[in-house]
Design a protein around this nucleic acid. Structure first.
Lengths: 226, 226
DNA sequence: ACAAAAGTGTTCGGGTTACACCCATGG
DNA sequence: CCATGGGTGTAACCCGAACACTTTTGT
């Protein structure tokens, strides 16, 4: 058998929710090929690290972001997807809470930036395909796992959650039914704190109760939002 | 950067439904490590073939089976999962119809065989983990995509479909409600042929109507069996 | 007092679930 | 005629969808 010379890389599509819109973390490449193009963060896996470690290391190095949720997305390996070598890329799907949003991205939009999902630049390699798959996964997953909470601050308003769902699912949701449904799960903790955002009646803050969720999950409970 | 020397392999968990039970296709390894252990089919990806091509080639070479459905499952890459080299394995999930069941497997149980999912031998490497993930995927997928039809012959009895669902989901299903539900989708074609399997009233044969399914899917129809 | 956002309850309809009897055939 | 599996209808219930008015605050 001929000696195989395929490189293994990891890439991550990281979503963040800010300014009432869904954003993706991108980096500007400073080497060829696709120099100066925007791309999703990633790089070659080191000899002795796991794939997950590789993703987290690359994210830290390239963007300074720490994800709050990470799962494998898909592996891409068509010959020719990287013009230099044959590269098989194991891609990941990550979520970050606002408080973990990269400082780099906030202060320096030169090589790292959050892009509104609806205002994306051209992407390097086959990254547009990867991003598209990640969007679908996010939309889908949001409906049957409580990953929305990994995009919100620890304490959040119900209206934030509502807006998050409407933004990502791209549809209108009835406020009353949504609240009833979510509250009926019993996985939210209503805090005593109220917050007043300018005009209107002050709103209650909520917290996602991980313990309770895991307990219910053990018992066969299914999170499900249409 | 140090030169990366990671190998890329593909492995496939292939399910078949025979003798009213779910079976998995396994091969007996004839080289070290894990010589004489059973393993899921797979091997290294060649320099110029896609991952899918690699899976299909390996399956053909090792088992003589042609799958009717194939999708990527997950990628495994923890250092040490293969005692020789670092290997990242992109795993796939396949389904075969009875008529495509390997001749090799039927006539020679020495190096290739179908194992009842409930009577599995010890598996090489981390293949037990992979198989487990594949089982979960199958169970899950069965409920929201019509992949059950890729496990049945082209013409099948309703009772076959019923048994398939009960076997894979591992629960009782009400015959009447199940039939009503499936038929209401309008994706089955009732054939004129009836078949009598020994005792009992002869049953009608059905065929899955792919065209109709794709048409409905375009229109937003969702296949869904609880 | 007015605008803005938060909080809450009821009704209706469709779909899922539960359930039992008759039919066609082979032995 | 009996055993075996195939084929069918109806009633109860539950959950999701639709929908509007009151409350609390800032200006």
């Amino acid at each position: 058998m001929v000696r195989q010379n395929i490189k293994v890389a990891v890439d991550a599509v990281v979503f963040g929710y800010k300014d009432k819109a869904l954003h993706v973390l991108l980096i500007k490449r400073d080497v060829e090929p696709y120099k100066d193009s925007w791309a999703i963060p990633g790089g070659l896996v080191l000899e002795n690290e796991s794939l997950e470690d590789a993703v987290e290391r690359e994210l830290k190095e390239e963007t300074n972001v720490t994800v709050d949720y990470l799962e494998q997305l898909y592996s891409f390996g068509k010959p020719g997807r990287d013009p230099r070598n044959r590269v098989v890329s194991v891609t990941y799907f990550g979520l970050v809470k606002p408080e973990h949003h990269s400082i780099k991205a906030d202060t320096d939009a030169n090589d790292v930036a959050w892009f509104d999902i609806n205002e994306l630049p051209e992407l390097a390699f086959d990254h547009a395909v990867i991003l598209d798959m990640a969007k679908k996964r996010l939309r889908n997953k949001l409906t049957y796992e409580p990953i929305g909470f990994d995009l919100l601050a620890d304490k959040f308003l119900f209206s934030d959650l509502e807006k998050l769902y409407m933004t990502i699912l791209d549809k209108q949701i009835d406020r009353r039914n949504f609240r009833k449904k979510i509250l009926s799960f019993g996985i939210l903790e209503e805090l005593k704190e109220k917050i007043s955002e300018g005009r209107g009646r002050p709103a209650n803050l909520f917290k996602f109760n991980h313990k309770q969720y895991f307990k219910l999950k053990e018992e066969g409970f299914l999170f499900d939002i249409k």
